[in-house]
Structure formats: C-alpha cells, structure tokens
Simulated assay, not measured.
Amino acid sequence: MESSTMTSRLFLTGGSGYVGRNLIRHFTARGTEVVALTRSARSAEVVQALGAVPWMGDLLDANLADGMSGCQALIHAAADTSHGRGTTQQVRTNLEGTRNVFASAHAAGLSRAVHISSESVLLDGQPLINASEDHPLPRRPAGAYSHTKGNAERVALSLAAPGFEVVVIRPRFVWGRDDTTALPHLAATAASGQLAWIDGGHYRTSTTHIANVCEGVARALDRGRSGEVYFITDGAPVEFRSFITSLLETQGLEAPQKSVPRWLLRSTATVGGLLEDLSRGRLKSPISLQEFATMAVEVTLDITKARTELGYSPVITREEGLAELKAAATRPSR
C-alpha cells in the first residue's frame, strides 16, 4: 500500500518499542518522514538508526506540541503494557499520557491521529467470541491494563474535533519478526520447563503479525472514519495450542505436554490478586487476572469492519510469518 499523499511527516510515540520500530520501517520505506518521541539517548539512537528523527521528551511534557511542528499526523503507540497489579505509572502513561499527546497534536494543528489500542479493553475474564467493534467495554475489566487502555481510548476519541480526526485500531496478540516482548518471554518459559497448557490449550485465538499491524495503522491513517474503532488481525482465528507450538518450533523448542485446569488457574489469579492488594504488592501472585483473561480463554475478533471501511486485508499470512521467524532463528550470526 502506498503511503498517504496527505502525510509527508508524522509524529510517533513509542518509536523504540516493538510496534514503534516496525512502524518507523514501514513509513520511512514509503517516503514518509517520521519524528519519534524518545525519552533516553539509547532510544534516540535506536529510532535514528531506523531512519526516524528523534525528539527528546516525555508523554506529559507541556511543550510536546513543539516536537509535532510540521507534522500532519500522529500515531500513538506508546503504552505501559504491564499485565500485573495496577500502578500510578501505568495510569500516568496510558491515560494522562494519551490525553496530553492528543491535546498537543490538536494544538499543533495535526489533522489526523491513530491511537493504537488493544482488544484487551474488552476483556473481563470470560471468552470473547468473534467480537465486533460495537461490543461494549466491560463494567469490571480484567485488570489495570484493560482498565487504563479502555479509558485511554475514551480520552483519545473524546478529543476528536473538526479538523482533527481520531481513529482507533485494536490488534490482538502481536507477534512476528523483531519481537522483543512476547516471544522471548514465551521461549524462556518453555525452555525452563515452566510452560503449561490451560485446559489443554484447545481454544481459539486471533493473532496479528507485526506487518499486519503496520498495514492496519496505515489504512486507518488514510481511510479510517473519525471516531471509529477497527479490529486488525491475521484473519481467521487459530487454535491457541497449535499457534504457540508453531511459535516455539521456530525457536527450536518443543511445546510442553503438561496442562493445568482452567478453574484452578482462575482461582489462583483471583486469590493471588486479593493477596497482592492486601499486601500492597509485597506478595506477588503467580498469575494475574489480566494474564488469565488474555491467554486462558478464547479471544477471537471479527475484522469485517476493517475489511469493508479501510480496505484492509492481511499482507502476510500466519504461515509466512512463522517461516520468517524460523529463518531468522537459524540464520548464522555475523
């Protein structure tokens, strides 16, 4: 897909993160100049090496609009993705940071903005089956991540105004090349023998390869209707166990055979969460309700709206993504 003729320069938050790094590659390859918000010299080096222009600052900086000067669009990818007990830092990043970023973009005269959210905003611990975008946000979110990201969505959409269009995308289970988050943790857990299936792992999940995330963001930036939310995935769901097994195989690892009952894990998460709260975080639960809701039940999404309104379709298949990961893992290091 060609980049929008309207966007020759865009401002990106979270540029040194997994999604952000790939967004820089995606947009610079199409001739768009990317200005990336960075909080450290190391992050600035990362985004500069990828072809972006670093702008040193913080999500809550009062002068953030200065860094957006000359940009036409915003992509907000920064987030505190911790799935543990809620913290003031997570509220600061996900909620107050989002508020300041979008208010600054409006003040700077940007015309378009894409907020990268997550299907987690809908999670409450129950299965989410073939959900569409009109599925309501739960009264009791699964955890602090779901709660803060859901509120961040509300804030971003509330700041849409004439001349400042705001679109939200929600990918699910982001994976693929250059993954420095989920895959390394999964591989380490499997290698240590600590990984187990939940009720055998025979339930479905939607997934979103990082290339498809980038395509979804670009489509939303070009074609998304202001005030609307769009799911972005790899297309048809896959069995959770089958997908995780394939991911591990790309790293030369065997999937486990052991399994734990879902009811036991849910009870552990519930009791562990209560003990964490009572001890003010001194006692740590082996699994949080947020983690349970994310990985222990079916979570599948309907992307009909993105296909219809954005013209979105996956640019890489699950099989191609897995082959790419396997090739990268077996490639001799230089």
Rank of each mutant, 00 (worst) to 15 (best):
S3M: 09
S4Y: 02
T13A: 08
S16Q: 04
G17R: 03
G20L: 05
R21T: 06
F27W: 15
R30F: 04
R42W: 10
S43M: 08
A44M: 04
A44S: 15
G51T: 09
W55M: 08
L59F: 00
D61R: 03
N63H: 12
G70D: 02
Q72Y: 07
L74P: 14
G84I: 01
G86C: 04
G86W: 01
T87C: 03
T87I: 02
T88W: 10
V91E: 15
L95S: 05
G97V: 02
G97F: 01
G97A: 03
V101H: 00
A103W: 00
A103S: 13
A105S: 02
S117M: 00
S120P: 06
D124R: 04
Q126L: 10
P127D: 01
P127A: 00
N130V: 02
N130F: 02
D134G: 07
H135N: 10
P138H: 01
R140V: 13
P141F: 00
A142W: 02
G143P: 09
S146N: 07
H147G: 07
A152P: 10
R154E: 14
V155I: 14
A160D: 11
A161E: 12
P162G: 00
F173Y: 13
G176C: 05
H185P: 10
A188P: 11
T189W: 01
A191F: 03
G193R: 06
G193S: 09
G201L: 05
H202M: 11
T205L: 14
T205Q: 15
T207G: 08
H209S: 09
H209N: 15
C214G: 03
E215C: 14
A220D: 08
F231N: 14
I232R: 07
F240A: 12
S242A: 15
L248S: 12
T250Y: 04
T250C: 08
G252H: 05
A255K: 08
K258Y: 06
R262G: 13
L265I: 12
A269K: 06
L274V: 13
R282N: 12
S285R: 07
I287L: 06
S288T: 15
S288F: 00
F292G: 11
F292T: 12
M295T: 14
A296Q: 06
V297P: 12
V297K: 07
V299Q: 11
L301W: 02
E309G: 03
S313F: 09
V315H: 05
T317A: 04
R318A: 10
E319I: 01
E320A: 14
A323Y: 05
A329Q: 13
P332E: 04
